[in-house]
Write a protein that binds this DNA or RNA. Structure first.
Length: 471
RNA sequence: GUCCCCAUCGUCUAGCCUGGCCUAGGACACCACCCUUUCAAGGUGGCGACACGGGUUCGAAUCCCGUUGGGGACGCCA
């Protein structure tokens, strides 16, 4: 049978990394087996579902290049399907109307908690006879089996057995007739011929209920694979307070989609000692049997390392385009500066993110925004003035503004003036970039350009003369 | 509280199923050194873990039981 997987987020917020990893595993599993990957939007809760969230999810999927073969299907547009199944279960005696009020149920639960037992519906409406109470719109409850137990042969966790007396009669339709999650999932997984349900392991407790519904419908449940959770550094479930968790936030923060994908896939899955995987490799190698059973902690350091790896191996034109986005976002006029390809190539080894790359490249555009205080104090001293004058003169004579010529000019000036290269390069670096950290001095000058370089050296000499207190 | 799941370096993990090849391997981070005009990148080396207690066995990270710890679920949310 052809593999069919689905990713079924509820649109109540952005696509977070946990969801993204689940989607990735679903996608990979489908690709690996030449199957079909379906996107289904679980928006039966109209109170909380928003179009903005749907868009955010779609954007996230697109950015990560997790393309789906079918969908997106919206549950809110499939209410008639669910209604028919509800009717059928009622007719067959597998579901019943319940007239208990929310207050009543709440009281029941508090009482049960107080007794130290698991809060669950006691089935008081199961055998209700006589006329229905007036003025109450009933919910519909599924008649969960009373005896026996449900076995889940989870593809990741192994065999899980849950006794039916741990379960209760869950609500499958609200008073207004709208269906609830555990029911729509079953109907959709059934109607969409899903063969493998791959989802977060916060759903394992729902699985036996869903299997029971499948059984009541006379259908065979799909195979289940419950992926462990992603935790924050404090061991708690990953959430907003841990920082960036929305997929699109990672884009904002300068991460490459391939880097995030690679990071996420290794979080819980491994293939021997291999760390770097191309999408192609993943599609060939991914297997649920290699997915870890334990939860894992999200580690930004490792993501950063991977991101830099991908930055280093992205082709120049692509990287230049990405850098341009970042620069433009920062209000930089990219026309007023060096070739972005050249820039990207010198910066790719010194930035973990595109954001960092852009920030470290600002010196090559527009005017200098002052000097970093410590750097100026250390390097823009009277002792450096002669070197700067000499190198300015030598630089001004260069015919073609190229790395080699610049390099030569700097090295020769240092020799001529009789100082070590560093004694010249550092003041020059501060003069030209405002900071004592930048790419190699020849590359830096190349990026800054001849006119700016000369003007900035002049400015630095003026600065030294004004502040030159030889203490 | 009840039920379910989980447990190897700080973190991600290999090894576990099919005990011996494990004085437990790799990666990130960290530290040191090398390279070096700064910052990086790169190279070399180092630090660092089988949660604990029983059992089975000639032999256990690997199998079994318990303890502890962590996570999840217990909605007319999904």
């Amino acid at each position: 049978m052809k593999v069919r997987t689905r990713f079924a987020p509820s649109p109540t917020g952005y696509l977070h990394v946990g969801g993204a990893r689940t989607a990735l595993f679903c996608w990979l599993f489908a690709r690996r087996h030449g199957g079909v990957f379906i996107l289904r939007i679980e928006d039966t809760d109209r109170e909380r579902s928003t179009q903005a969230s749907v868009d955010a999810i779609l954007d996230g999927m697109q950015w990560l290049a997790l393309d789906y073969d079918e969908g997106p299907f919206y549950q809110s547009q499939r209410f008639d399907h669910y209604g028919a199944y509800v009717e059928r279960l009622i007719d067959e005696g597998s579901a019943y109307h319940c007239y208990c009020t929310p207050q009543e149920l709440e009281a029941m639960r508090t009482e049960q908690r107080a007794r130290g037992v698991k809060p669950r519906y006691d089935g008081r409406c199961r055998a209700r006879t006589g006329a229905p109470p007036a003025g109450i719109d009933p919910v519909v409850r599924f008649k969960n089996p009373v005896d026996g137990s449900v076995v889940i042969d989870d593809l990741i966790k192994g065999r899980i057995v849950i006794s039916n007396d741990e379960l209760d009669d869950l609500i499958i339709a609200r008073p207004d007739g709208t269906p609830t999650y555990n029911f729509t999932v079953v109907v959709d997984d059934l109607e969409m011929d899903i063969t493998h349900v791959i989802r977060g392991d916060d759903h394992v407790n729902n699985t036996p209920r869903q299997i029971n519904i499948f059984n009541a419908l006379g259908a065979t449940p799909p195979k289940y694979a419950h992926v462990p959770m992603i935790l924050g550094p404090d061991g708690q479930r990953l959430s907003k307070r841990h920082g960036a968790v929305g997929v699109m936030q990672f884009r904002e923060d300068g991460y490459l989609p391939d880097a995030l994908i690679n990071y996420l896939v290794r979080l819980g899955w491994s293939h021997g000692d291999q760390e770097i995987f191309s999408r192609r490799e993943l599609c060939e190698l991914f297997d649920l049997s290699e997915v870890n059973r334990a939860a894992s902690v999200f580690d930004t350091d490792k993501l950063n390392w991977l991101n830099q790896h991908y930055i280093k191996s992205t082709d120049t034109a692509m990287l230049a385009g990405l850098l341009e986005e970042q620069l433009t976002k920062r209000g930089v006029d990219v026309a007023d500066g060096p070739d972005l390809g050249v820039l990207a190539d010198v910066q790719r080894e010194r930035a973990k993110t595109l954001v960092e790359m852009a920030e470290k490249s600002l010196f090559a555009f527009g005017d200098l925004n002052g000097y970093a205080e410590k750097a100026a104090r250390k390097h823009l001293k009277p002792a450096a003035a002669d070197g700067l004058r000499a190198v300015r003169e030598r630089l001004a004579e260069i015919a073609a503004w190229r790395t080699e010529a610049i390099h030569e000019a700097v090295v020769e000036t240092a020799e001529a003036v009789g100082i070590k290269l560093g004694k010249l390069a550092q003041p020059l670096r501060v003069a030209v970039t405002g900071s004592d950290m930048s790419p190699s001095i020849d590359a830096t000058l190349l990026l800054v350009g001849r006119d700016r370089t000369l003007a900035r050296i002049d400015a630095a000499i003026t600065y030294i003369e004004a502040h030159g207190d030889p203490s």
